Simulated scan of single mutants.
Amino acid sequence: MAHITLTNPNLPGITGLLDYSKVTAVPLLNLAEALLRSDSSLNSAECELIAAHVSYLNDCHFCHTSHAAAAVAHLGCDASLIDDIKENFASTPISPKLRALLDIATKVQIGGKNVLPEDIAKAREHQATDREIHDTVLIASAFCMYNRYVDGLGTWAPQQKEEYLEMGQEMALVGYEAQY
């Protein structure tokens, strides 16, 4: 049960909060759209993986699983990817560049000052551009905020990853632009 009385308590995670406050829903959704689906050399699947990874590190089940499900939809793979994120992508075939960017996202999740010049150099060694490094840091930072918003207000979340696959498909196809 959420810590506040939501307009529709049946909506899970951030969806209930967006429905509760249309004033904050618009900029939050527009930010998610810009971060996860904008014109960048990182594709939407990679951006969703960064968001899901940071959300997992923040122990935000709703955000981790919903954004991992969106990555599954973008990649056309099976739901095992959701669990691979929990294992730090140990068995997931990702590029060395994405692995270096995920390492940067991990450092941002701990605290921005934990990102060191050698982390940036490693990403650049794998051809990460300034824009990709920028976008990774911004996605990681924003998802720390989104995760704290969802969990700080005690929203509920479905527990089974399969319950997120339809939501992930919609996120991947429709996106996040505010409909309010």
Rank of each mutant, 00 (worst) to 15 (best):
D84I: 02
A90M: 11
L81C: 04
R124E: 07
A121Q: 14
H134I: 15
L81R: 04
E118R: 12
Q127L: 10
I133K: 06
A128W: 04
S95L: 11
E87H: 13
R124G: 02
L98Q: 03
P93H: 10
A90F: 06
R124V: 07
D135Y: 00
G112E: 06
I94S: 10
I133A: 12
A69E: 02
A68R: 00
A100F: 04
T106G: 13
Q109M: 04
V137K: 02
A140Y: 03
A90S: 12
K107F: 10
N114L: 12
D130C: 11
H126T: 02
S80Q: 14
A123K: 05
V108Q: 03
T136E: 08
S95F: 10
H74L: 08
D84C: 13
A128M: 13
A73K: 08
A90P: 04
A69D: 07
L81W: 00
K122E: 11
T106S: 15
S80F: 07
A79L: 08
G111W: 06
A68D: 06
I94K: 10
K122P: 05
L81K: 05
N88M: 06
I110K: 09
D103R: 02
A121S: 14
A73L: 03
L138E: 09
E125H: 14
I85D: 06
E132S: 00
E125P: 05
D103C: 09
T92I: 01
G111A: 14
A121D: 15
A70V: 10
T129R: 03
A90K: 12
I110F: 08
A123I: 04
G112P: 01
S91A: 13
L102D: 06
D83C: 03
R124L: 05
I139A: 02
G111F: 12
T106N: 10
N88L: 06
A142L: 01
A142T: 13
I133F: 07
L116C: 11
K97R: 15
T92C: 11
H134E: 15
V137Q: 03
E118C: 11
K97A: 02
R99H: 12
L75K: 11
L138D: 05
D78S: 10
P117K: 07
K86L: 07
L102E: 03
L75H: 05
P96L: 08
H67T: 05
D83L: 14
A123V: 07
G111E: 13
E87D: 15
G76W: 02
P96N: 11
G112I: 11
D103S: 14
K107Y: 10
A69W: 04
R124T: 06
P93V: 09
C77L: 09
E87W: 02
P117S: 09
H67I: 01
A121E: 14
S80L: 14
G112C: 10
V108W: 07
A128V: 09
A69M: 09
D83N: 15
H126L: 11
D135P: 01
V72E: 05
L138Y: 07
V115L: 05
E87A: 15
Q127K: 14
L138R: 05
I94F: 11
A123Y: 04
H134L: 15
L116T: 08
S95T: 15
T129W: 07
P117M: 08
G76K: 00
K122H: 14
D83Y: 12
I139N: 01
P93L: 06
V108R: 01
P96R: 10
I104S: 09
A142R: 02
S80K: 14
K86P: 01
A71P: 00
G111D: 13
